[in-house]
C-alpha cells in the first residue's frame, strides 16, 4: 500500500466515521448528561478527602492564599445529601478553624453549618446564607464548592461538539441568582464539566470557571480497583472585577471509610489527626 492510498483510506475512514456518527443515536438525554455531570463534580466514591489550595489574584495582581484539608462523605447512593469538613491551614488568621456542613439537597431544607474558632474554643452555628456568596473571599462561590442542585435550573442541550455536550442552564428562580443563565461544557467521555460560562443580561459573559487539569485517582471499591477521573486544577475568573482564583486539589483519596462520627461536634472541636496534617 502506498502513501497515497493510505491517506485516502484514512480520509475515507474519517468520512465513514462522520457518516456513521448520527446513526449511532446513542446520545444521552440532557437530564442524563446533567445527572452524570453532577455526580462527577461532587459525588464520586462513597467518601473522599484531599488538600485544597486557593490562590486569589485581584486585578492589581495582589495575591492571597487559602489552604484547607477537606473531608466529604455521601449520605446516600442517589447523589443527594452530603457532609463536609474543612480544616483551615492558611492564612494565619483562620489557621485551625474548622468549617462543617451537613448539606441537604432538598430545596426546602437549608444546609446545617458550623464554624469552630479555636482561640475562643467556640462552636458557632452559622445561619444558612446566600449560596451565591464568595467562598472564603475567593472567586469561587459556595455553590461552586458544594454544588448547585440540578433541579434549580432548566437544562437545554444546545450543541454537541466532538468533545463536549454544551448545555444551557436557566435558573427556575431568577431572582435568587445574579446570572441570567450559564453554559456548561461537559466532557463527553468523562462527563466532567470542563467549562462553565455565566452570562448576565444581553448575553454578557461575566464569570468563567475552567478546568485546567484532571487526574485519574485510583481507589478500591468493594475490594476492586477503580479509577475516579478528578479535577485537580481549575480556575474561576470574575471578568467584572478582574480577579481570578486558581484551585489546586491534591493528596486525593476516595473510599477511605470515613465514619459519620467525624462530622460531629467532637471532631469539630478537635479534628482527627490525619485531617490536620
Amino acid at each position: 500500500m502506498n502513501l497515497r492510498s493510505l491517506i485516502a483510506g484514512i480520509s475515507l475512514g474519517i468520512l465513514a466515521g462522520l457518516w456513521v456518527m448520527p446513526g449511532q443515536a446513542q446520545e444521552p438525554s440532557v437530564d442524563e448528561i446533567i445527572h452524570k455531570a453532577n455526580h462527577m463534580a461532587l459525588y464520586q466514591g462513597a467518601d473522599g478527602k484531599g488538600k485544597v489550595s486557593l490562590v486569589i489574584t485581584d486585578k492589581e495582581g495582589r495575591i492571597r492564599n487559602r489552604e484547607f484539608n477537606m473531608l466529604r462523605k455521601n449520605q446516600d447512593n442517589v447523589d443527594q445529601d452530603q457532609k463536609y469538613f474543612a480544616y483551615f491551614k492558611a492564612p494565619a488568621d483562620v489557621r485551625k478553624m474548622v468549617f462543617m456542613v451537613h448539606k441537604h439537597a432538598a430545596l426546602e431544607k437549608d444546609d446545617d453549618r458550623w464554624l469552630y474558632l479555636p482561640s475562643l474554643d467556640l462552636v458557632k452555628r452559622i445561619a444558612a446564607g446566600d449560596k451565591r456568596t464568595s467562598f472564603v473571599g475567593s472567586d469561587f462561590l459556595y455553590e461552586d464548592i458544594s454544588g448547585r442542585s440540578p433541579v434549580d435550573d432548566q437544562h437545554e442541550l444546545i450543541k454537541t461538539t466532538d468533545k463536549f455536550y454544551v448545555v444551557k442552564n436557566i435558573p427556575k428562580r431568577p431572582e435568587s441568582v445574579e446570572f441570567e443563565y450559564y453554559v456548561a461544557y461537559i466532557d463527553k467521555a468523562t462527563f466532567i464539566p470542563f467549562k462553565m460560562e455565566f452570562f448576565k443580561k444581553d448575553n454578557r459573559l461575566y464569570r468563567l470557571i475552567e478546568v485546567l487539569k484532571t487526574e485519574n485517582i485510583s481507589a478500591k471499591k468493594n475490594g476492586k480497583d477503580v479509577v475516579y477521573p478528578t479535577v485537580t486544577s481549575s480556575v474561576a475568573r470574575d471578568l467584572e472585577n478582574g480577579s481570578s482564583t486558581a484551585m489546586i486539589y491534591s493528596n486525593i483519596k476516595y473510599n477511605v471509610g470515613l465514619s459519620d462520627d467525624l462530622f460531629t461536634e467532637r471532631y469539630l472541636r478537635r479534628p482527627p489527626r490525619d485531617v490536620m496534617r
Partner: peptide, 10 residues
C-alpha cells in the same frame, strides 16, 4: 435568633 439578611451580612 441569627440570620443572614443579605449577601455577607449577618
Amino acid at each position: 435568633y441569627a440570620q443572614d439578611l443579605a449577601k455577607d451580612f449577618n
